[in-house]
């Protein structure tokens, strides 16, 4: 039953992505949409971890940054084809996440937050310090993304690439949520001990989701590195991690479309708030607080149930 509705949602999203360019007057609007799309890919993955498995991560920008730097370093320093560099980055991040997952996911709540935060910070310190390889604080360029002789040059093309990747990411996430693994995951979020009592190997599922969400971040990071002229270690730092978590919670935990809306909303909001100049930060903070106070479950679940109630 769930499955069909998720597929319809996906189809609607595909239509929206297809129509949206009609309303994008120039490359700047494309840029906002593209950056929102990159954030959304990471958040859809992160939501699997936070929303369904109930595990917080304050280090996902580290995985995002590792993917980005894997692409940049392998492409510019070693001349790898971008797609291979992307896959290599995803593999490295996947293996790293797998190795880290067991000891880390034994931790609970804020201790888990601390551990993931520490890992993210260590990654960004390494990226910042090993300047011969990474370019240091001023960053590194990954060059354009090309595959089979075709190079992505315009914002328009990037828009379709990111839109397509986002759809695939959501489709994968939906499948995971609806699979037996997904049901076990929701059990984990409900009560870990309870799930174990009925024979669910919670540890194994948490590891799986941790790895999947890290790989989502890595792939988004790789593409992002090719999209931007220059990437810097700031893409891997603590603030970026907090930003991702905020997007997920803001849009609504345990809702794939919530993560999407959270990512889009919080990516576009600072661009809108520039009209307030010096009061930008104040208003952004107030909007974040206000939304979470009055919609504690996040934008999409709260608005969704409101609409359903009104119709019903």
């Amino acid at each position: 039953m769930f499955r069909n509705e998720r597929m319809i949602g996906l189809a609607v999203l595909a239509v929206i992505i297809a129509i949206l360019p009609q309303f994008l007057p120039n490359n700047y609007y494309y840029d906002v949409a593209i950056q929102a799309g990159f954030n959304a890919i990471v958040c859809v993955g992160l939501n699997l971890l936070i929303g369904y498995a109930g595990q917080i991560s304050l280090g996902h920008a580290g995985f995002f940054g590792l993917g980005a730097y894997a692409s940049a370093i392998l492409c510019t320093r070693y001349g790898w084809p971008p797609i291979l560099a992307l896959l290599a980055g995803a593999l490295v991040v996947g293996v790293l996440a797998f190795v880290l997952a067991r000891p880390i996911l034994k931790l609970k709540g804020h201790y888990l937050a601390m551990a993931t935060l520490g890992i993210g910070i260590i990654i960004s310190i390494v990226l910042n310090t090993e300047a011969q390889i990474t370019g240091g604080p001023d960053g590194i360029s990954a060059g354009p993304f090309s595959i089979g002789g075709y190079t992505i040059k315009t914002e328009q093309t990037w828009y379709w690439v990111v839109g397509g990747t986002l759809l695939v990411a959501i489709w994968l996430a939906n499948n995971l949520v609806d699979s037996p693994v997904g049901r076990a995951l929701r059990a984990v979020n409900g009560s870990e001990v309870g799930a174990e009592v009925v024979g669910v190997d919670t540890a194994r599922y948490k590891v799986l989701v941790f790895v999947v969400s890290a790989v989502f971040a890595s792939v988004a990071g790789s593409l992002f590195a090719h999209y931007l002229p220059q990437i810097t270690p700031a893409k891997a730092d603590f603030f970026k991690s907090i930003e991702f978590v905020t997007m997920v919670v803001f849009g609504g935990m345990a809702s794939t479309f919530g993560s999407l809306v959270g990512a889009v909303f919080l990516s576009a909001l600072p661009q809108v708030l520039t009209v307030f100049e010096d009061y930008e930060a104040m208003i952004l903070g107030a909007i974040m607080m206000g939304t979470m106070i009055f919609m504690p479950r996040g934008l999409v679940p709260t608005l969704g149930s409101l609409l359903v109630r009104r119709r019903g």
Partner: peptide, 17 residues
């Protein structure tokens, strides 16, 4: 608790602003 954490993050941005 996660929502409350995001509220405090919003508060920190607000207070810095």
């Amino acid at each position: 608790v996660t929502t409350l954490i995001i509220i405090t993050i919003g508060a920190s941005i607000f207070l810095r602003g």
